[in-house]
Simulated scan of single mutants.
Amino acid sequence: MSVHPLTPGDGPTVERPKRTLAALKEALAQVAPSQLPVMEAERDEVFTLAAETQSVGPVNGFLFRWATVVEIERHPEVARRLHRAEQAVRMAGDEETMRAAIQEVAEIQAAARRAVEGG
């Protein structure tokens, strides 16, 4: 299945891809191309681990992780919120600010995981 762009606006910029390496890679190339090298490096590590352990668990985890990343990035406003919160975590000058930013990151990631699980 190819990933088709959707109409511009507040909604997603591409359809939710199937949880396959090819579909996720295609979607990531559209919504966050700078993350492709990270995905590819992680893929190599995960497939090596899967072969060493003779388990598909690492591959399933990898696919779920990247499906979650794509889920966030295909919604531009959600992605902007996440990146602002991540920046706030790194730059926080006090504990309260850091806790609030960490909470925002956690909430965005949890919502994306739920969407991927249900979608």
Score class of each variant (00 low, 15 high):
2 S>F: 10
3 V>Y: 07
3 V>S: 11
3 V>E: 08
4 H>R: 14
4 H>Y: 09
4 H>Q: 14
5 P>R: 14
5 P>G: 08
6 L>D: 03
6 L>S: 10
7 T>D: 10
7 T>F: 08
7 T>E: 09
7 T>N: 12
9 G>W: 01
9 G>S: 04
10 D>S: 14
10 D>Y: 12
10 D>M: 14
12 P>E: 13
13 T>L: 11
14 V>F: 01
16 R>C: 10
16 R>F: 11
17 P>T: 02
17 P>G: 01
17 P>Q: 03
18 K>W: 10
19 R>K: 15
20 T>Q: 02
20 T>D: 05
21 L>V: 12
22 A>G: 09
22 A>Y: 05
23 A>F: 01
23 A>K: 02
23 A>M: 04
25 K>T: 15
25 K>M: 10
28 L>S: 00
30 Q>D: 04
31 V>D: 05
34 S>C: 08
34 S>H: 12
35 Q>Y: 11
38 V>G: 13
42 E>L: 00
43 R>N: 11
44 D>Y: 07
44 D>M: 09
46 V>C: 07
46 V>K: 07
47 F>P: 02
48 T>D: 12
48 T>H: 10
49 L>F: 01
50 A>V: 02
50 A>H: 03
52 E>A: 14
53 T>I: 04
53 T>Q: 15
53 T>P: 02
54 Q>A: 15
54 Q>D: 14
55 S>R: 04
56 V>F: 10
56 V>A: 13
58 P>D: 07
58 P>W: 02
59 V>H: 01
61 G>N: 12
62 F>K: 02
63 L>C: 03
64 F>K: 11
65 R>D: 09
65 R>H: 08
67 A>I: 06
70 V>M: 02
70 V>F: 04
70 V>T: 07
70 V>W: 07
71 E>M: 09
71 E>Q: 07
71 E>L: 09
75 H>I: 03
75 H>F: 11
76 P>S: 00
78 V>P: 07
78 V>Y: 07
79 A>D: 06
79 A>N: 05
79 A>K: 03
79 A>C: 04
80 R>E: 14
81 R>V: 12
82 L>N: 01
84 R>P: 05
85 A>S: 00
86 E>R: 15
86 E>F: 03
86 E>P: 06
86 E>Q: 10
87 Q>L: 12
87 Q>M: 13
88 A>V: 00
88 A>R: 07
91 M>D: 15
95 E>A: 15
97 T>G: 11
97 T>M: 11
98 M>F: 05
98 M>S: 13
101 A>V: 05
101 A>L: 11
101 A>S: 12
102 I>L: 15
105 V>R: 08
106 A>E: 15
106 A>V: 09
107 E>D: 15
108 I>K: 00
109 Q>V: 13
109 Q>S: 11
112 A>H: 06
112 A>L: 03
114 R>G: 10
114 R>Q: 14
115 A>N: 10
116 V>M: 10
117 E>M: 12
118 G>T: 14
